[in-house]
């Protein structure tokens, strides 16, 4: 599973392109960035937090599970 922030971010961009979704970063805190995914009609289809610092397995698994309905279960592999 991807564990580095840059890898995860790039995978999100890649998957978003594949599913014709637009990623948008709502804001950032010290530890996470807030991600919104929009479909072609500009509806938010998913929201998630992407850890940038002090990355833990629990946070990564939560991110994987939050976006699995959109990107599929294996999207972070």
């Amino acid at each position: 599973m991807l564990t580095a922030y840059q890898e995860v971010r790039d995978r999100i961009y890649e998957m978003a392109r594949r599913y014709s979704l637009r990623p948008d970063w709502a804001e950032s805190t010290r530890n996470v960035r807030l991600l919104l995914l929009y479909d072609a009609s500009q509806m938010v289809v998913a929201r998630a937090t992407v850890p940038v610092r002090d990355i833990t397995m629990a946070k990564l698994e939560r991110l994987r599970d939050d976006l699995a309905p959109i990107f599929g279960k294996e999207w972070m592999e």
């Binding site: 580095a4 996470v32 998630a48 991110l63």
Partner: peptide, 25 residues
């Protein structure tokens, strides 16, 4: 939960909302 960060090695607190997406720390 209390767990060790993969990138920094620090022991940190992770918050997982129940029934909602996202996490905090």
């Amino acid at each position: 939960q209390h767990e060790q960060a993969l990138d920094t090695g620090a022991w940190v607190w992770t918050a997982l909302p129940q029934g909602f997406p996202g996490s905090a720390g």
